[in-house]
Computed example of a mutant assay.
Amino acid sequence: MQDETPANLRLHGAAVLGSDGLEPRDLGLAGGRIHAAADGRMIDLRGFWVLPGLVDLHGDGFERHLAPRRGMVRDLTASLPQVEMELASCGITTAWLAQFWSWEGGMRAPEFATRLAHALQDTSAERRIDLRMQLRLETHMTGDAPAIEALILETGIDYLVFNDHLPHDRLETGRTPPRLAGSALKAGRAPEAHHALMQALHEQAPEVPAFLARLATTLSRLGLHLGSHDDPDAQTRASFAQLGATISEFPTSKDAARAAHASGQPVIMGAPNVLRGGSHNRGGIAAEDLIAEGLVDALASDYHYPAMIGAALALVERGTLPLSAAWALISAGPAAIMGLKDRGSLTEGKRADVIIFDPATKQVIGCFAQGRPVWIAGPLADRLM
């Protein structure tokens, strides 16, 4: 992070979100922290809301900045500031970029994951937003443990989830995998070679449990947070929990979510699912149903950064949750999952990760990370000028 000391500020006249909802009060920022008695430059925020910055545990909206079109992968170091600006404009002050380590190739290949991890490390001193990487490991990459462990040690990756995107039912019966030509094109392979690779990985299934157990043990010793993606049922959730992968990310059944919740394991769902009123996958579960049942600990942006605030407001408008509880799903909840006790709410002593929100337009008009401005726009920019 940058070394300059942030200015002391007093945010005046806004409705500030606390545990009981919005309340009119001033909020002080001093030394990058929330400080009720801070005495500094006063900013008139009458008519606006002051809210905690968002914590996004899984988002891949960054891809459009790094590769605007297929095959056009830009200089990652030069592109990351654009990612930071989009995050800030959506009120996100802490974010994990969800990056595959996969047989699927292209931007999901191990080579690309390595490039991105090093780019994040090399540019960390230039950023104001806390930007990290979630490694999404395909479970059948059984020969890659040394490379994965080396990358984690070199770049400080702190979060890994297990995925399995192989079409096992098709491969088991000898049928052609769905969308083979398109996925082969993305990977830069001939369809026949891509199919052969998937078949070979599928046949490694007997080796996968031992591989995952060894790797999970090593990663747990390194202090990583571990999870699994798209748990289809309670049995799968239990098997990953036994490995130490206690986070259930985007479970695809109520049974999986209920099993995780009953065992005290965090459940993360996608914010776009809430906005849509259900999963984009046929037969998928609706995140809002799980939220109403008290099974969800956090919402993540998934593929669309603006969806986090949109989902929280939708939950309020539909009467599912009050604002304080809905906002906790995108701030305090995800912060708690990752053990980040210094952020997620506007309480004394916590990081001054603060967003200014215009309820009339439902737009973020200001974003501060550790008390430093990252995004200023609209009527807030007018007032400051």
Rank of each mutant, 00 (worst) to 15 (best):
I157N: 00
V364D: 04
A117S: 11
E138K: 01
G61P: 02
L45V: 13
E126P: 00
N273R: 13
L166F: 11
T252M: 06
Y305E: 13
M141I: 05
H65G: 00
G349S: 01
G371H: 03
E149P: 04
V267R: 03
R69I: 05
I376L: 09
G47T: 15
M141C: 09
L290Y: 08
N163T: 03
L45Q: 05
L80N: 00
E249M: 08
G71D: 06
L226T: 12
L340M: 11
P334G: 04
K254Q: 11
P177L: 03
A256K: 02
K186A: 09
A335G: 10
I157W: 04
P178H: 00
Y305L: 14
N163Y: 10
A262L: 06
D56Q: 06
L295G: 06
V364R: 02
S253T: 08
W375A: 09
A37P: 03
M269D: 06
L315N: 05
M85R: 11
P191Y: 01
P68C: 08
L151T: 02
E126I: 01
A300T: 05
S324L: 08
G294C: 06
L384C: 12
A328D: 14
G264Y: 14
A193H: 13
D56E: 14
G47K: 14
I34G: 02
R221G: 15
D44W: 14
P6Y: 06
I330V: 15
A369G: 06
A381F: 11
T94G: 10
R115A: 07
I355V: 15
G244C: 13
G28N: 03
K254W: 07
G371T: 04
S79E: 03
P322F: 09
A325P: 07
L295M: 06
Q242L: 12
M107T: 04
D382C: 12
T5Q: 00
M42Q: 13
Y159I: 04
S239Q: 15
F100K: 00
L97Q: 03
E154Q: 00
A300Q: 06
A147F: 09
V16W: 07
V364A: 10
R74V: 07
L166W: 06
V316L: 12
F368Q: 09
S324F: 12
D289P: 05
V50C: 15
F211V: 12
G339H: 14
R132S: 03
L9F: 13
S239M: 15
Q99N: 02
I291N: 05
M141G: 01
I268K: 02
S124Y: 07
I330W: 10
A113G: 00
A336C: 14
L295T: 04
F368I: 07
G339Q: 11
A7Y: 02
G61V: 01
E192I: 13
G339F: 12
G227V: 03
G244H: 12
M198R: 11
L66G: 01
A298C: 09
G13F: 14
Q82C: 08
W101Q: 04
S253N: 09
N281A: 12
I356L: 15
V267L: 05
G143C: 05
D44N: 14
V50A: 14
D302W: 02
L219M: 12
S263L: 14
D255M: 01
N273T: 11
F211T: 10
M338Y: 11
R115W: 04
M107C: 05
A205G: 13
R64Q: 08
L57S: 10
E154L: 01
R343T: 08
L87M: 05
T176K: 04
